[in-house]
């Protein structure tokens, strides 16, 4: 809850009147939630969008959340930490996959890119290993 209620002495905040319509109430969390809040950029991301059927990262900053274990959608990881996109890989059919690393526990995960992902963020991530000219030059000159 709020930080102030932890300092002691203050009564807990009263529940706020929902700004959402009655039908949407209660669908903010859980598997039937219609949107989620990005842990990094705070963007309110709708889970229903053209371009993807399984929304598992923010289309703006590509940040994900550590909820799945080895299988996508199994919700077996009890971590819940923020997962930042650290790299890009390509499957054998040429499809791009994001590599996420959990900030809390260091766990890794891969996710398919979605059709409405930020193109600049995707390309920036793909060229990031090559962006340091000194490193790339030293790699290629010491063959």
């Amino acid at each position: 809850m709020g930080r102030r209620s932890d300092r002691g002495g203050r009564r807990p905040q009263r529940p706020k009147t929902s700004l959402r319509s009655h039908g949407d109430r209660g669908r903010r969390h859980g598997p039937t939630a219609e949107s989620f809040r990005c842990l990094e950029c705070r963007l309110d991301v709708s889970t229903r969008a053209p371009g993807t059927a399984h929304r598992n990262h923010c289309p703006n900053c590509l940040t994900s959340r550590h909820v799945d274990g080895r299988l996508p959608g199994d919700r077996s990881a009890g971590c819940g930490g923020r997962m930042t996109a650290v790299g890009m890989t390509a499957r054998s059919d040429g499809e791009w996959m994001l590599v996420h690393r959990c900030v809390s526990c260091g766990g890794l995960g891969t996710n398919r890119v979605a059709g409405d992902d930020n193109v600049r963020a995707l390309v920036r991530l793909a060229v990031r290993p090559l962006s340091d000219p000194a490193l790339t030059r030293s790699l290629l000159t010491r063959l």
Binding site: V86, G87, M88, T89, M97, V99, R101, T110, R128, P129, S131, D132, L135
Partner: peptide, 8 residues
């Protein structure tokens, strides 16, 4: 599968 750039 991937190369990740981490602190140079």
């Amino acid at each position: 599968i991937a190369v990740v750039s981490d602190h140079d």
